[in-house]
Design a protein around this nucleic acid. Structure first.
Lengths: 210, 210
DNA sequence: TAGATTGTTAATCGATTAACAATC
DNA sequence: TAGATTGTTAATCGATTAACAATC
């Protein structure tokens, strides 16, 4: 049971989200089908890789035609669980946290930020892009009502573990961790680290090697 | 000549930036040395992997002791080219762009955002976190004076290629591309794509497989 | 039919991990 | 000295790519 679950390579998952973005733009032009070759050309990939990736979603294409765009969109969205909405809270409305609150792009991926928490009295009670900012002291009181299953952590390193413990205690199952610290969580909680510096490092290395 | 340049695996580069972040936090506590085992434990990695990664920087550790933290920090920073500052401009002060302007974390990585460009008259002439926002029409006039070699693209898909062409014409050598489109650039220009949705996709898949 | 494209099985490639001698 | 840790060479593992039959 566990074997076939683990089998999807992470690079494949990341690329599927790219395909989805491209497919949605194609759909808007009224186009109905697209081949793996075409997707590959537009994203600077190999067509064989695109076909292999798509095969994980279970959808089958038509020889000589390719894939039906609406079907493929639906299949990838379902595969990623982006077809039904997930509620998230954001913890730590600093520079990066505030930015992410303003960023509307996650809604396309089925993620809705329904509330934010912070300890700065100046911003508690305000709203950023219609998302209310609550007092972190009220986390226990508020979280259940918000219906969030994911927490986005954009808070200072020093409080990351403490707040994580509280979130886990309240039933949060997924943590999108924008801090550089390793978080200790029970095995049924998923932590996904996100590191903008890593991308910058890759760019820097490539620039330095010119 | 080109062979040994290409040899550094990208995952290694990404991890080196993580090590750097950890090492800087360790340094602040006054600690002087650290072993690969210790680094690995703190970041949930294998010590052999840490040693292998560090070997790319050329620094050598001391058996039984580990690595001297200040030396290792200096070595990684030099390796990534983060020891001397690079100037960058940010193009497109929308939700994500504005957020990145507010985010001060890149300065630790030797990247200083010295100016932003947009076409919205409401924000042209203002400053965000002391970073001035210029009219995109003045790009040609302003860019040289700003001394930027990197451009951060957080603009709408429709104008991405057009603005890229102008940036390349002005001598920009590195582009950190936060848009989902593939950019056509000459071979001496480096484009690094950054995709927050990809990270969310990985989290979603892991959550769905529980 | 001919030709383009899919889907799958096998081969290749590169990153990770293991093994182990060298060192302080 | 004994033991912990490094650095390197070899083995393993997993993702990518190639080959090719099946299909419309």
């Amino acid at each position: 049971m566990k074997e076939n679950i683990k089998k999807i390579p992470e690079p494949t998952v990341r690329r599927l989200s790219r395909y989805l973005s491209l497919l949605k733009r194609c759909e808007m032009t009224g186009r109905e089908s697209i081949s793996a070759t075409n997707i590959a050309n537009r994203l600077e990939l190999e067509s064989i890789q695109v076909r292999k990736d798509i095969s994980f979603t279970g959808i089958v294409g038509k020889p000589r035609v390719g894939y039906l765009i609406p079907d493929l969109i639906a299949a990838i969205e379902e595969f990623l669980g982006w077809n039904n909405n997930t509620n998230a809270v954001l913890i730590g409305v600093g520079s990066l946290g505030g930015a992410l609150l303003g960023y509307s792009g996650f809604q396309k991926n089925g993620l809705e930020i329904v509330g934010a928490f912070d300890n700065k009295s100046e911003i508690i009670g305000t709203s950023i892009q219609d998302i209310p900012v609550f007092d972190i002291e009220d986390l226990e009181m508020m979280l259940k009502g918000l219906g969030a299953t994911i927490a986005i952590l954009t808070l200072p390193v020093e409080v990351a573990q403490e707040i994580t413990d509280r979130l886990v205690g309240l039933g949060i199952k997924g943590i999108w961790n924008f801090t550089p610290v390793k978080l200790k969580v029970p095995s049924d909680v998923i932590v996904q680290r996100e590191d903008l510096s890593a991308g910058l490092a890759v760019l820097s290395i490539k620039l330095g090697n010119k």
